[in-house]
Design a protein around this nucleic acid. Structure first.
Length: 361
DNA sequence: AAATCGTGGCT
DNA sequence: TAGCCAAGATT
């Protein structure tokens, strides 16, 4: 569907919005300046993540890696550790890869051309537009969920915003709004309006600086927009995890693979329990086959629900005892870790770890 | 195009 | 409370 802007007074809309933004914008750590590296890191962290969640991570990240070169020189483990708990870990690995490319290929200067910046790992259409507009004042739209929600309402767009085609349509439309404004200011103003006023539920139309431009409000349908397809219910998997200590009091940990869920994070050894089998027999066979360890399961310690976007793990954590002290046929992805050491590794299973620390403390 | 990829907070 | 949602990218 073609998006119609003919009814809208674009200069008036821009003026009302930007004035509101300058009077109401939040004081956020990534708004201290327009350093491309700082803006870039903030935009990656903010993907699918609330501002309030990002703030403490962003501050720590910037203390650990104050410059692009500092991040480029860091070990992957340190970068993932700084990201631990923030989720979507491929963001961290892709950012690290991209920053190393910039250090090596662009002399450490973030490229300001769309072609070059958008080609970097983890930089999609939104992040490219956001960094190019906010750090370099390029006339590029930055269409995220806020922008599609705000403009679905302003322009009474009923296209499904979960479709890539709809995002592209908004990008075309938003380009029309970037004439006669500072791109950095306008793009952030739309997102700020979406975050503070034009919220998904119960939008604050009475406080809205552009209420007189809004077709959805005119029709009284702001609560019904944007249109978005429902997601299917996540699959539920029965999982078993094991806490196994050696004779030195160290606990067995496993590092997950290069790709996929929780990639490269450390965890207690765990696997799915197929229907019809018991956790005990599955775990014992798993330890013998994958780790070369003969052990027996003693007892369940706790139940943990780990909820992902598309998946739910119902995990039972078991305590195991070695039947005999044996060598791990380790290839590096399995390690016995002391209590103090394991806090230097990026880990998943936060809930297990936190409760375990309390239990041991 | 539709799945995959985290986590915490809200209603 | 069970779903929904958040400054999305990748395959």
């Amino acid at each position: 569907m073609h998006i119609d802007v003919n009814h809208l007074d674009i200069p008036g809309f821009q003026q009302n919005l930007i004035q509101w933004y300058n009077e109401n914008k939040r004081d956020l750590p990534w708004r201290e300046n327009q350093d491309p590296y700082r803006v870039w890191v903030s935009e990656v962290m903010l993907q699918q993540t609330k501002v309030e969640t990002v703030i403490p991570y962003y501050k720590r990240f910037m203390e650990l890696f104050p410059t692009l070169h500092a991040l480029a020189a860091a070990d992957e483990d340190k970068v993932l550790k700084a990201w631990e708990g923030l989720g979507y870990y491929s963001r961290a690995r892709n950012l690290h890869t991209a920053v190393k490319e910039v250090a090596a290929g662009y002399g450490g200067k973030v490229p300001s051309s769309k072609k070059e910046f958008a080609a970097l790992k983890g930089v999609g259409p939104y992040t490219a537009g956001a960094v190019l507009s906010i750090a370099f004042e390029k006339r590029e739209p930055a269409v995220d969920g806020n922008v599609m929600r705000v403009f679905s309402r302003i322009l009474l767009v009923t296209d499904d915003i979960s479709k890539p085609k709809t995002r592209k349509s908004f990008e075309q439309t938003l380009t029309l709004f970037l004439e006669g404004v500072q791109p950095s200011e306008f793009n952030q103003a739309v997102m700020e309006l979406g975050a503070l006023i034009c919220t998904p539920r119960s939008p604050g139309c009475l406080l809205c600086p552009v209420q007189m431009h809004c077709r959805a409000r005119e029709e009284g349908v702001q609560e019904n927009l944007p249109v978005k397809a429902k997601k299917k219910a996540p699959a539920v998997k029965k999982m078993a995890a094991v806490i196994l200590k050696n004779n030195n009091g160290q606990t067995l940990f496993h590092q997950r693979g290069e790709t996929g869920l929780l990639a490269r994070l450390w965890e207690y050894p765990n696997l799915e329990v197929p229907a019809g089998q018991t956790s005990e027999e599955v775990l014992e066979a798993f330890l013998e086959h994958d780790y070369g360890l003969r052990a027996s399961i003693i007892k369940p310690l706790q139940h943990v629900e780990h909820i992902f976007s598309h998946l739910v793990w119902n995990i039972t954590v078991y305590e195991a005892r070695l039947l005999e002290e044996e060598q791990l046929h380790s290839k590096g992805e399995w390690l016995y870790l002391h209590e103090a050491e394991r806090h230097t590794f990026p880990v998943s299973h936060q809930k297990i770890l936190h409760r375990q620390i309390q239990r041991e403390g």
